[in-house]
Design a protein around this nucleic acid. Structure first.
Lengths: 193, 193
DNA sequence: CAAAGGCTTTGATTTGAATCAAGAAATTAT
DNA sequence: ATAATTTCTTGATTCAAATCAAAGCCTTTG
């Protein structure tokens, strides 16, 4: 049990007794997704909350011209969901797609509500984890328009260097909010230094 | 009690029995802040969670050139906090400032943790409200770099028209991620249509 | 009510990133 | 191994928004 990625992740930010984890385990299913497969698309209702055991997902938005903008990438130990859609049964405007073959843990609506209501450490874990995402999003939103492409790329290198090794550059460009050409030029300039 | 803004806000998204609200009330304090006053600044530790009874706050980021970028404005019925800082006692990189004389309800750390742990409807309310913020931030992040200034302003007019009436334009420009000059030109162009 | 300061508009100019276009390199499929 | 496709780089050009500068408009306040 102690080699469970999920339990380790819980214990990163809260105390999580074994007995609670044992209650949670039967409520979780395992899902394998292939590269490029979707968990949900714009217009879908999100039916599950996902935890990544292995692999990489991206959540992204498509604008009216069909251009894609990556909101974030999540890798091992990350969560992906769209709880507004999930809790209210309303369609989401976001897309969730696997960028690698991935192994996910999933909780459905009924089990998630049971868990968050009845397993106290999960509740607190969830609130804290949400806050981390929230804070990251606020910072990224601020940075998105205030930083130059070069500043964005340098920040990316410092904060998420491991993503550079596993993602194609055009996906990173769509994450940093620039064209692939601009990213290529920024990288060239930085190497030159 | 039924005329409480806070209780009305709770009941907007969850069932919230009177008895739970009665338990919560003594844990809340009322705070008046003057226009331009800060609740926290970059480098501070956020010590309270705020609910706006009256007034308007902005949360913003300052970049290395001293330029400000507004993350969001919150008005009546909105919450402002920085829980990553609040829960971990770590300094935040964001600023929270009143843009009008405002009346706030505030919960401190100890009471907030008690509430979220022991008053179940509050827990669920909080999770849902967080998700709304989260979803809004994801969408705004996607839109921030993919939309033109004109598209951003039109979206703002459609989604948050009431803010136009109570905020100076340069604050709105710093929210939409453009200069005041650009906002002025966009507005002129739209009026012309 | 005059003065001061902050906010908004307008105009001229610059600039940096997007776009367009094409070729090179790297993956993936056959 | 070769072909096909996708991804990445490089160069030339365009264009939209930033910047710079100044004037006008509002508030606020002494």
């Amino acid at each position: 049990m102690n080699d469970s990625l999920l339990l380790t992740e819980f214990r990163r930010i809260v105390e999580f007794p074994d007995k609670d984890f044992l209650k949670l385990m039967p409520l979780i299913e395992m899902i394998d997704v292939k590269k490029n497969e979707y968990l949900f698309k714009e217009g879908d209702i999100s039916r599950k909350v996902y935890f990544i055991e292995k692999g990489c997902l991206r959540q992204y938005l498509i604008n009216s011209n069909g251009e894609e903008r990556n909101i974030y990438f999540k890798v091992e130990n990350g969560w992906c969901s769209e709880l507004v859609s999930f809790l209210n049964n309303t369609p989401t405007e976001l897309n969730l797609q696997a960028l690698e073959d991935s192994k996910l843990l999933a909780i459905n609506q009924k089990n998630w509500i049971y868990t968050v209501t009845n397993i106290a450490p999960f509740t607190m874990y969830f609130i804290k984890a949400q806050q981390e995402t929230n804070y990251m999003l606020k910072k990224r939103l601020g940075e998105a328009t205030i930083e130059t492409p070069e500043e964005k790329y340098i920040r990316f290198l410092n904060e998420e260097p491991q993503l550079l090794l596993r993602l194609p550059l055009f996906q990173i460009a769509a994450y940093l909010g620039m064209t692939p050409e601009t990213l290529s030029r920024v990288r060239k300039k930085i190497v030159a230094k």
